[in-house]
Amino acid sequence: MNRRHFLSSSAGMAAGLGLGARTTAAQAPAPTPASPAAGRAPQPPVSSLAFTTKPRKALIAEPTEDDLKKMKDAGFDGVEGRVIPEAQAAKMREAADRLGMKIHSVLYGWAEFNSPDRSEVERTFAESEAALRTAKAFGAETVLLVPCRIGGQGAGPRRQTGTFAGGPPLRMPRPWEFRIRFDEATGHLTQVVYGDNAPYADYIKAHNHATDASREWVTRLIPAAEKAGVVIALENVSNNLWVQPEIFRHFVASFRSPWVKAYYDIGNHVRFAPPEQWILTLGDLIAKIHVKDYLLDPADPDGRGRSVNIREGSVRWPVLRQALETIKYDGWLTIESNGDIPFEERNRRLDLIIAGT
């Protein structure tokens, strides 16, 4: 059968089965006045997704009772506090209770568990224990802890510089170049890019040392967390570690403890992987979520951008909301930064996110 006969025969078979080509716009009949489409602007699709999860809304602050009232009046359910003396935290808890607000977490932040200076390691370990006690006094559920950091220096023409605990700036892949492989037994990186990994040997070495040091000192912190009844929620903000979802999940899960989970920050990771990918990968390991946005610069060869107010960046919020529904996340959504817009506007934008729009 030649090509012409084959195409003719195939078209006839498709027509008989109802599989013919779709009618083109030129062939389609024009809508009549009775047609629902006639004279009407295109309508957005109606989502049939009914969310069963109901995340709660919070801000980060070291609040006074007056601040708590303003946040409550703006529509927020709670606040993430900072490390303060236990007696002061207990009084603030009483004030929050009177207003029907919840101090749900404590933001401690940077520890230096991979520092070559043992005194720095022990100092930040003691501060982490104090943060757990503060959280208990607040009646909070978690402490946000960044266990350590390493220096990062991009491979492109515009470089991120800075000196962090663990050594001088290191050459690391640009965000879009990462293709991480790791040892399942140890969590050690074996590859960070396709092809030649020799230029990143120092970064891989520092990363693996930081993983081991973090695992050692967070494990030592678990008894204090259990005593306080407070979860250690690990975050990897701007520390150049565990920058893809699979390796971060492996690190958090490696503790095999209900007292160690992840604190996922939406804006911190946009340049490395879509937020919905982080959420679906981390899944039930997520204890809390920080709400931030990040605007990618499509003209930047290093794959970077800048932080912006929520709903002004590159996050696909309806997709992210559906990811939260998929993992059944009913926890706290805490807005970080965004200080140049009032409480009421922050609350309005967060309501839109929770609604999936």
Score class of each variant (00 low, 15 high):
I286F: 10
E235P: 02
S307H: 11
E276V: 05
Q244H: 03
A299Q: 14
N236D: 13
K292M: 04
V243R: 13
I279R: 05
A233F: 04
S238E: 14
E235K: 13
Y264T: 00
L295K: 15
Y294L: 04
I266S: 04
F248A: 14
V230A: 12
L285Q: 15
I247G: 05
F251L: 05
I286R: 05
A273P: 02
Y294R: 00
Y294Q: 00
V230Q: 10
I279Q: 03
E246D: 15
K288D: 14
R306H: 12
G305S: 07
G283S: 13
V270E: 10
V315S: 02
G303V: 06
R249D: 10
W259M: 14
Q244P: 05
V231C: 12
V231I: 15
D265R: 03
G305L: 11
I310H: 02
A273M: 03
I310E: 01
Y263I: 00
A225D: 05
V315M: 05
D297W: 04
I247V: 15
A224V: 09
D265I: 00
V291N: 00
R249M: 02
Y263N: 15
P275K: 06
Y264C: 04
K288V: 11
N240K: 01
R311L: 15
L280S: 13
L234Y: 09
S307Q: 01
H269S: 13
V270G: 11
N268H: 12
I289V: 14
V252Q: 08
W278T: 07
P274R: 13
F272K: 00
P275W: 02
P223D: 07
I289Q: 09
G313D: 08
P223L: 09
Q244C: 07
S238H: 11
I232W: 12
L285N: 12
P275I: 02
D300F: 10
I289C: 08
V243D: 01
D302R: 04
N268Q: 14
N236Q: 14
I310N: 11
P258T: 07
Y264W: 13
G305M: 01
S238K: 11
R306S: 08
K288P: 05
A225R: 04
Q277P: 00
K261L: 12
L280C: 08
I222H: 08
F248D: 01
L234G: 08
K292L: 06
A233V: 06
V231N: 02
V308A: 03
L234K: 05
D265H: 00
L285G: 08
A262L: 06
G313Q: 09
V308Q: 02
N236I: 03
R311Q: 11
D302Y: 06
I222C: 12
A299L: 11
R306E: 10
I310C: 11
E312C: 02
V260F: 07
K261N: 12
V308H: 07
Y264F: 15
K227W: 08
G229A: 13
V315L: 01
I279P: 09
I286S: 09
D300P: 10
I266R: 04
G313Y: 07
S307P: 06
I247D: 08
A224Q: 09
A225F: 01
L285R: 12
F251E: 04
R249I: 03
